[in-house]
Each structure stands twice: as C-alpha cells, then as structure tokens.
Nucleic acid binder design. Structure first.
Length: 943
RNA sequence: ACACCGAUAAUUUAACCGGUCAAAAUUCCCGGCCGAUAACCGGGCAAUAGGGGUUCGAGUCCCUUUCGGUGUACCA
C-alpha cells in the first residue's frame, strides 16, 4: 500500500524558482498602484514615530545609472526600509543635480551652431535634457526596488530650489564671505570656464622641461665680488614655457645659499647663479665637465632680493624676490614666477606688488599685445617659446618630463592656471576654515573613521572656493556692474528680492530681463547709484554659480524648507555617498552650512568604496570590464544585485563579476529554498490556534527558539551599525545550519505524526516563529523575495505588505544559553555518530541512516549528558532507528581525555512502509502489517 | 611625490581587545537519499600576497616589497 497520502508532506505555492525578473516587475507595479512609500510614511507619521533622516546626495542628471550609483541607492534603500520596519519615520526624498557644464556640453554638441542660440533658449534645452535624464534615472532607481518620494523629488533646477540657492548665497553676501578678486584659478580653455578643486582630475602628461637663463641687470658688487666683464645669469627651470611671456619675477628662498659658478661657454666665460646644493649636479646636467666650471662665490638668497634681471625676450625687468615656496628637490633653486599663472606665484607676487598678469584669453590664446606669440594657443606656443629662447641663446637645456598634471573633469583636456576676476567664498572670513575643522571633529561621526582625517586634511589646505563659472546653465550670481566705471554691486536685499522672482519664474528670468528690471522696475530699491562714480546705469553679472554650490545647498532647500522635512529634517542623521564625496558634496555642504551659520548639516557620514572588477581593477570602458546594472537585473534580478550590495563589506572596494553573481545566486537559492520548505510545512498551521506555548515546547524546539532569537538580535545590531555583509552572513549561516540540523531532524515528526499532534505543533511553532523573523529581516535587503514569501506566510493579523510590518520585540526568556550549551555539546556527539554512520555507509552496512542501530560508547561527561535526554529524543536527533548507550571503558584515550565512540549496526526489525523507520513492531499488526506501531496509531486516529 | 585603505582556499564572506589545529558557504571530488527533487543530507580537497621584526603567542601590532583602489598636490 502507498502511504504517501497519509503523510503531512510540505505543500506551498511559493515557487522554488524565483523568476525574479518578472515577479519584480509585477511587484513594482503593485507598489506603484498602492503608493507604497506614501502609505509607509503616512502610517509612521500617524504613529508619531521617531524620525530618521537620510539625506540623498543628488546624482547628476546625465546618462544612465552605473553600478556605482546603483550600489549607493541600494545601500540607502536598505537603510530606509530597515528604519521603517524598526519603527521610525524615515522620509526619503531623492534628488538630482541638474545644472552644470556636462549637461550644457551635451546640449551644445547637439546644436549645429551653438552660438546662434540665445542663452534663454539654451537654458530651456538644458532643462529639458536634465528632465529627461531625471525620468530615466528615476525609473532605473525604482527598478532596483528603491522607495522614496519619487513623485516629488528635489531637483536643483526647481524654481524654489533655484530661489533657495540664491538665498543661501545672499547669506554669504551679508556676512562678507563672498568676495571678488583677480587671481589665478584653474581654467579650462576648451570649456571656457573657471573650475573648482573638485572639478580637477590629475592625469599623466608629457611636458617640456627647460632651463632658461635670465641676464642679471643690477650691479651685484655690493653683494659679491666677481670678475669684471662677465655676464651673470639667473638660471630657472620650468615645465610651462608658455608662461614665460608672463614672467615678472624670479623667486629665491631666503634660507638657501646660492653660488656663482663660472662656466666655459663657447670659449667665453659666463657666470650662473644656482642654489648651492643643486649647483654641481645641475651644471653636469648642462654638459659641463668637472674642469669646465668653477664656483666663485656663495651668498645667501636674501642678499639678492630686489635685484633685477632682464626678461630674455621681452623688454621688461624681472625682479628677484624671496619666497618660502622655493624648494630644492627639483629645478635650480630659482623659480620662474608669473603671478597671473600660479597660486604661489600670485601669493608671493602680492608681497612685492606684482600684478596678476595673464595675457591669455578665455580660449587659452595669447592676447594681441604679446610679442612673438599673439594669437597662439598656449600649449601650442610652448615649442615656439623654446625656439625663441634658442634663437637668442637663453636656453640652457631642454628635456621632456612625464608628470601628473591637472585636467578638466569634463573634457579631459589639460587645464591652465589663469588669473581672472572671479567670485570666491573666503575660507578665512568668519573663521570658516577653523569652524569647519572644529565641527567635523566634534559633531560628526565618520564611518569609517578615517573619513575625518580625509576631510580635515582637505579643509586645512584648500584655497578659497572659486564659485563663479562662465557658463549659462546654472544659478546666476546676482551681481551688477556699473556701466561707466565697472564697480561691482552685490547686495543682500536686492538678492533676496531676486530670489523671490526666481521662486515665481525660475532663474531664467535673470537671462530674460535686463539689469534695470531687477534694480528699478521691480521696485526692489529705488535709484540705485554706483557707490564709486554715482552712475545709475548697470549691467548684470554673467557668471553663474559652481554646481557644487547648488548641491551643497541641498540641506537648506530640502532639510530645512521642504514641506515634509521642515522642523524634522535638519541636521540629517546620515549622509551616505562614495568616498570621493569627501571633496565633493560632504565638503561643499559643510562649507555652506558652516559658512552661513546653519550648523553642521549631518550627524554622521557613511562612505562606501568603489565598484571594481573581479581582480580589483576599476571599471572602465577601455578595459572592457564594465557591467551595467540593467544587465544584471535582466539576468539575475534586482534582488540578486541588492544581495550583492549587502554581501560585501562596502567600506572597501566592491568586486563584481559574473562569477561572483552566480555564486551569490546559489546563496540566494539556499535562502529561498529554506523559506519555501518552512512555508510548505506550515500549510495547516494557524498561529493563533495551533501554536504551542513557549514553556511547553520540547527542548530541541526551545533550543531553536533560542537560536532564532539570538539571530534576530544580531541582525538588528548589524543593521543598526550598517554592517549589511554581517546581516547576510548571519542569515546565510543560520539558514544552512538550521536546514541541516533542525529541519532534517524534524522532518520525521512533521511528516509522520498526526497533524494536530503536540510534537508536530511544537515544531511548527518554531518554524512559524523563525519564518516570521527570517522574512522580516530579509525584507530590507531582498524586498521582492520577502514580499513574495510574506504573501504565502499564514499569519493572523498580518499586513498585506511586508513593508508595513515592524520587527517584533524579542522575548528575553527565549534566550537560554544553558540550554544552548547542552545542545551544542550534544551536537559534538552527533558529529561522532554522523561520521560513524558515514563509515558504515562506505562499508555498505547501511544506506539511509534510518537503517542503523547506533551504539554509543560514551565517555563519562557525554554519558551524563546523554542520560538527560530520552532515547526517543536522541534517536530523532541522530535520525536513526535504534540507539543504545553504554559507558566507555578505558580505551580510546587522547590527550588524557576519553573520547566517545559510536558503533553502527543494522537496525533490528523491518522498515516501516510509511515512516521508513526500522522497527520490530512492523508486521505484528494484522490490520496494517507493513507499518510500525506509531504509524498504525496515527492511521487509526485518522479514520 | 605624499597620505590613507585594502590583499584570507577556485569564489564570496568570518575570526571581539594579538590567544588553542584560521570558521563558513559555494564550486569541485566521493557517497547517501529519491516524500523540499533545477531540492535535501553526509564526507573530502583547499587560504592569511612576499620578506623581515616585536611577543610566550600575530591574519590581527610595527617595518618593508609587490599589486590594486582612493585622496591630496606650489614638481614652478
């Protein structure tokens, strides 16, 4: 007879095969229909939960998302979902960075003739372009399972955001932090704009490396005694020959000593000035042999201050000045100084009242009044400058040098330093630098903690923030210039009024109306006059703000001014971005918030590493190792991608490859299958009617309740400290051990015992308890799979959506370490039994372990432990049909301890056709002669 | 150039403050089961990047080399 139908075999419709792609798409539609996120927030608000604010750093609205952005969004989503389930009100407002050069670039590229279009029209195109990518990325983020206020995100190009950006700038006008100056800044000749430090990339570049001699004009007799009639030269080194036309000085270090070396040059003797320690080496480099040069004298650098040299090819003096920036690791110890083309040059030039002379236009072309090189592009001119130097005999040596050189982050072309008039936010006014350094140390938790060192290091050395850009697509700097004298006018009240205009019409209005509109027609202020010349005619500033200012102001626009965030949003509990944002968004947000006296914008800052390939190299098109999120989602599903994001420690770089993903899918399948098996065994279980009280549970069951409760506590802890890889690790470890021990052991009772038997209900109670925890704690990481599992989980009073559920408090009574210890010791004995069974199996004594009779010859301690259990219990735990326990003699001594051993024989009796256990009771019943007594009782009961 | 981070079996992750033979799982190999079956169970193989040092004891601390990543930057 076939007894299969009399067993309680697992039954569930939860499919074994996930088919994630299509179920995910189905669920996304459902979530959209029921407005999942809105319901979650409404519910949390209603319950007056504590708040948790994760402020989204805006990705740039250009192009499709890549794995890096996907990783970031997934991590954020895990946190948001966890916080909600933990009973927080955790509103999440995603944002996008919409202004800026890259978008303007792409719009320019799409135009046939970019100069034929007005600024206003171009801005419209940029807005449209950005809006399109916001929609594309929004769909891509939602596809990852990310939830948030996607219906109403923050966009830096929203009118209200643009207005708030200007209002925040107004704070800097008011407190004097914003100033205008003519000084060297990074300039991209191709993009024709100034750039900030955050927009500069360093790349290897080959440059000329030349030594040039400047003839000394001044009389040096008061300093040093030299032979009459010899020309004296200051020898400098530079890698940017094109800056020589702008040379105004030569810098020496006041702490260095300089030698006068006589050299034999074409049978004539001339004298070179070089730094003492570098002289010999350098002269040899120039080709002079030991007997071809002679050191005549040595003087301190200070002595040469304010002497004059002659510019090699321009009729102008070059003054010798002193500066600490002169080093002796490279060069000659004499530094060519062009205050218009270098930071240090500018700084030292200030002391000597040298102008920031930079005769180069915005395309990087020499102005018309530059002798010899007018009209040339600066980098092209290098070779001509060298030619010129050769021609006039001023070139001492020419080489090539490979060095890292600043490049534009957008067009990847080399940058130049060029002094122009720009707007800056001062690091010193209002003690910005000092205050920022103080607050990052005292008020922010950095995870990992080296984040503090990183941002502090940057804050310590960074120059004033150049915030103006010579482009169209952005928020204008609301300054004016007097038409007759050029004096700038920038005013707090006017700016605040302009902000109101932006609120209504967007920043576009700045480009549509003329200066008069803002200054007079709007009645902002009447009859404004130039403070310098009294003229009433003004023109508008054409510069816009750095996009880092836009995004940096997000805490203000979103956390302080958004309807949903007001009063609860500031400061944020958490900022979470890639570790490159220490110089980006973390930095700009901080400077703005501190600079405008709003306080620290974040309480903690969490950073993650970058996505790299399986061998640890970064993904790049040229290496061909780029994987698109889309590809992974279609092949494996978003839950697998999320599991990947959770499974690795994101504080380091995150490796990804097809192999890694397919390994991960195995892990996923294990978790899914265990859930499925648990579901299958609960098909007839009603938790309110059938659950066994904890006190009454069998010991093994109590032991598992202990394990599960401990698991829940650990998971909660790891989630709270954002250690998702430990969450995954723990879930996974639990699932495998639970499956191979408890589930395996329980199968017999679950299948064979009567449906409503205590034993079966006791186990089901554990399964129900465990499944509830397993599904809930998988929720933040695997929202799709756990939603699906949840829908099959029969529990009274449960929410339809897992996302509406909360984690349950763990009853401390469920945790019993003493009990656990007993079972852990028992597990050791079980392992001995299992290995004996394995041996017997190899020897073909048995196949299934149920064919076995096990005789345990137990050592003293083990014997004591075993006698605390009933034989029937132990039989189940070892999954054998018969068991005998004996005390061990004196053999088997190892390290002075007695080790228990197990002997395996074929079990007596016959195999029960129903439960497969071997029993002597099989064949003793007339009514059911092929089954055991236990099964017979169950069947009789069934009737 | 400098600073910081990282490198654990074929793969991915563990190992608290330095403490016993470095823990899992997946892959692979061997076997069982055929009532979770594109499943389940048992067994086996296999690692601290290289070299030094501190220590009774080091994956863990220090130095160094290699590789990878990130950041900083006045190489004029």
């Amino acid at each position: 007879m076939d007894y299969k139908n009399t067993l309680n075999l697992p039954s569930t419709d939860f499919p074994m095969k996930a088919n994630l792609k299509s179920t995910e798409e189905k669920f996304l539609k459902e979530w959209d229909e029921i407005s999942l996120y809105e319901k979650m927030t409404a519910k949390a608000k209603e319950k007056n939960f504590k708040t948790f604010i994760l402020h989204d750093g805006p990705p740039y609205a250009n192009g499709h998302i890549h794995l890096g952005t996907a990783l970031n969004k997934i991590l954020k989503d895990i946190i948001i979902r966890f916080k909600f389930m933990q009973g927080y009100y955790a509103p999440y407002i995603p944002g996008w960075d919409c202004h800026g050069l890259p978008i303007e670039h792409n719009v320019d590229k799409s135009l046939k003739n970019k100069d034929s279009i007005s600024q206003v029209e171009k801005r419209k195109l940029c807005r449209k372009y950005a809006a399109e990518f916001v929609e594309i990325q929004k769909a891509e983020f939602k596809r990852l399972g990310s939830i948030g206020r996607y219906d109403n995100p923050y966009l830096t190009m929203n009118y209200s955001y643009e207005a708030d950006t200007v209002r925040k700038m107004a704070d800097f006008i008011k407190n004097g932090g914003l100033y205008r100056a003519n000084k060297p800044i990074y300039w991209c000749s191709s993009c024709k704009t100034a750039l900030a430090e955050a927009e500069v990339e360093y790349a290897e570049k080959t440059s000329p490396s030349i030594y040039v001699k400047f003839k000394i004009k001044s009389d040096l007799s008061d300093v040093v005694k030299l032979p009459e009639g010899k020309n004296v030269f200051a020898v400098i080194w530079t890698t940017t020959p094109w800056t020589l036309p702008a040379n105004l000085a030569i810098s020496l270090n006041p702490d260095f000593n300089y030698v006068f070396a006589e050299v034999n040059k074409n049978k004539e003797k001339e004298i070179y000035i070089l730094e003492e320690s570098l002289a010999e080496e350098t002269l040899k480099k120039f080709g002079f042999k030991d007997n071809e040069f002679k050191i005549l004298a040595e003087v301190n650098g200070k002595k040469l201050e304010s002497k004059f040299a002659m510019h090699p090819f321009i009729n102008r003096d070059s003054i010798l000045i002193l500066g600490q920036h002169v080093k002796k690791d490279t060069g000659t110890g004499l530094v060519h100084t062009a205050p218009g083309h270098g930071d240090e040059d500018y700084a030292v030039g200030l002391k000597y009242n040298l102008p920031a002379y930079a005769p180069v236009n915005n395309e990087g072309i020499f102005l018309n009044d530059v002798d010899f090189f007018a009209g040339m592009r600066v980098f092209d001119s290098n070779i001509h400058v060298i030619e010129k130097l050769k021609e006039i005999g001023a070139l001492v040596l020419e080489e090539k040098i490979e060095h890292s050189y600043p490049h534009c982050w957008r067009c990847k072309k080399p940058l130049i330093l060029r002094s122009t008039k720009q707007w800056f936010i001062s690091m010193s006014i209002n003690n910005l630098r000092e205050n920022a350094l103080k607050t990052v140390k005292e008020n922010v938790k950095w995870i990992p903690k080296w984040g503090l060192d990183r941002i502090s290091g940057m804050l310590e050395v960074r120059p004033d923030w150049c915030v103006s850009r010579q482009r169209s697509w952005g928020v204008p700097i609301t300054a004016f210039y007097c038409k007759s004298c050029g004096e700038p006018l920038i005013d707090y009240d006017i700016t605040m009024k302009i902000a109101d205009e932006f609120e209504k019409y967007g920043a576009d209005i700045w480009f549509e109306k003329d200066a008069d509109y803002f200054l007079n027609e709007t009645k902002i202020k009447k009859h404004i006059k130039c403070s310098k010349c009294g003229s009433e005619e003004f023109e508008k500033e054409s510069d816009i703000l750095d996009v880092w200012f836009d995004s940096g102001v997000s805490y203000f626009c979103v956390l302080k001014n958004d309807e949903d965030m007001k009063a609860i949003g500031f400061p944020a509990d958490l900022y979470l971005e890639g570790s490159d944002q220490h110089r980006g968004w973390f930095h700009s947000s901080l400077l703005i918030a501190i600079g405008s006296q709003d306080g620290t914008p974040y309480k903690s800052v969490l950073t993650h590493g970058f996505v790299v390939d399986s061998s640890g190299r970064k993904m790049s098109k040229s290496l061909g190792n780029v994987i698109a999120p889309d590809e992974i989602i279609n092949k494996y599903g978003a839950d697998i991608l999320r599991l990947w994001a959770a499974s690795e420690d994101y504080k380091n770089d995150m490796r990804i490859s097809n192999e890694i993903l397919s390994r991960l899918s195995e892990g996923y399948r294990k978790i899914r299958n265990t859930i499925r098996f648990m579901l299958g065994n609960l098909f007839d279980f009603d938790d309110t009617a059938d659950a066994v009280k904890f006190e009454d549970l069998n010991d093994v069951d109590k032991y598992e309740i202990h394990n599960i409760s401990l698991l829940a506590q650990n998971l909660s802890r790891h989630y709270s400290s954002y250690d998702f890889h430990l969450v995954y690790q723990n879930i996974y470890k639990f699932v495998t051990s639970f499956s191979s021990f408890y589930l395996d052991v329980s199968k017999d009772s679950l299948y064979v015992e009567a449906k409503n038997s205590f034993k079966r209900r006791s186990i089901q109670t554990v399964l129900h308890y465990g499944l509830n925890i397993l599904i809930k704690y998988s929720g933040p990481i695997l929202p799709f799979t756990s939603k699906e599992a949840w829908s099959y989980f029969n529990k009274k009073n449960k929410e339809k959506e897992l996302a509406f559920e909360y984690f349950d408090e763990i009853d401390e009574n469920f945790i019993d370490f003493e009990l656990a210890e007993r079972f852990e010791k028992l597990t050791e004995i079980r392992n001995i039994v299992l290995s004996s069974l394995e041996k017997a199996r190899t020897e073909k004594v048995i196949g299934s372990s149920l064919e076995a009779l096990v005789i345990i010859r137990a050592a003293e301690e083990d014997y004591k432990l075993l006698s605390e259990f009933k034989i029937s219990e132990l039989k189940e735990i070892f999954i054998v049909s018969a068991l005998q326990i004996e005390k061990l003699g004196t053999t088997n001594e190892e390290n002075g301890e007695f080790i228990s051993e197990a002997i395996v024989e074929l079990a007596p009796g016959q195999k029960c056709a129903r439960c497969w256990t071997f029993s002597e009771s099989v064949g003793t019943h007339n009514d059911y002669n092929d089954i055991c007594g236990r099964c017979r009782d169950v069947l009789i009961d069934l009737k």
